[in-house]
Design a protein around this nucleic acid. Structure first.
Lengths: 174, 174
DNA sequence: ACCTGAACACCGTTCAAGT
DNA sequence: ACCTGAACACCGTTCAAGT
């Protein structure tokens, strides 16, 4: 005698995404997720193996979102970097999770294509990959530090971002 | 009737540092720390307010270590960056904690001085801060991604690091 | 086939009682 | 003044029993 489904994997992942943005990954408890989707905690284990897998799914969904955004940008250095930064500001906790969760690294690959294209265009075939890594490392580090509140010496953080864009443009076309 | 101290804050923080390196911050439980220092969990609360404070102290100790290392380097772009990277490889979990833990951001300030000096030397007074932020953002992002296993497109990661150093040198002296 | 209550192990934290 | 056992709240997870 089957029971009608009272929730779905999509709904569970969406609840997880909301929860982490409300105060970090520690807010994502199986109990809180269950309550949000209207089910008891044990029922979640019909859809996800455990909490770690749910965190990975949340990270994956965030990567997918980011990939769509980047693909829709104009593909320029400034365009990609600003898109990346504004995405991180929208979902700061999701952004962090992408680099934290075990197993999210693979899926980040799908995001790297537009940056790799840009690296080739700017610095040439030979060092396309190295150029892409310079760009991504800078942008990721900048945003991570910005979100963590690590820029403490005053100054204009937006100006520092634009400065980075200008100089990287110089450095890669050199 | 006083009881002789059976542990100390220093010993507790050191135990915490060991524990996180053995498998991430989740390994740092009050029970595991207590066991390591030879005391029962409730006793820890005589020295630290709660687990979060202990995590902050562990991050702080890591920042102090890093500050000493950077101060002992030659102060060049390559010297600072390589010191930073090798420190992160020695204590990957401590490195991550520096940017994760609430309240570790303030203490990172003490580390920024040598980079700020370098930024001024390379790019001039006017943009010293912006230059320092470009350097730190790149190095931090690169190392973070390296530790997280985010470089998945093959290629030589060491080569990408050296490429970044060369091009940043170009970009900042430009 | 999904859902639930009950149960278990584990963790952070408090507190009264010991020395 | 520090230490402890006992206790509580909370969490992840399992499982037998329900529909």
């Amino acid at each position: 005698m089957p029971t009608p489904d009272r929730t779905s994997l999509i709904e569970i992942v969406e609840a997880g995404r909301d929860l982490i943005e409300s105060g970090g990954a520690s807010r994502l408890t199986m109990q809180a997720v269950a309550e949000r989707v209207g089910v008891r905690p044990p029922s979640l284990y019909k859809r996800v193996r455990d909490r770690d897998e749910l965190l990975a799914l949340v990270a994956q969904a965030t990567v997918d979102d980011l990939g769509r955004r980047l693909a829709a940008s104009d593909g320029s250095l400034a365009g990609l970097a600003r898109t990346y930064r504004s995405f991180a500001r929208e979902r700061p906790e999701g952004f962090r999770l992408m680099f934290t969760v075990e197993g999210a690294a693979e899926s980040l690959q799908q995001v790297s294509e537009p940056v790799l294209l840009l690296g080739r265009e700017m610095a040439g075939e030979d060092v396309a990959l190295e150029a892409a890594r310079l760009i991504v490392a800078w942008a990721t580090g900048f945003i991570d530090m910005e979100l963590a509140g690590s820029f403490r010496l005053g100054g204009d953080v937006d100006r520092a971002f634009e400065f980075g864009l200008e100089r990287l443009d110089l450095a890669l076309r050199g």
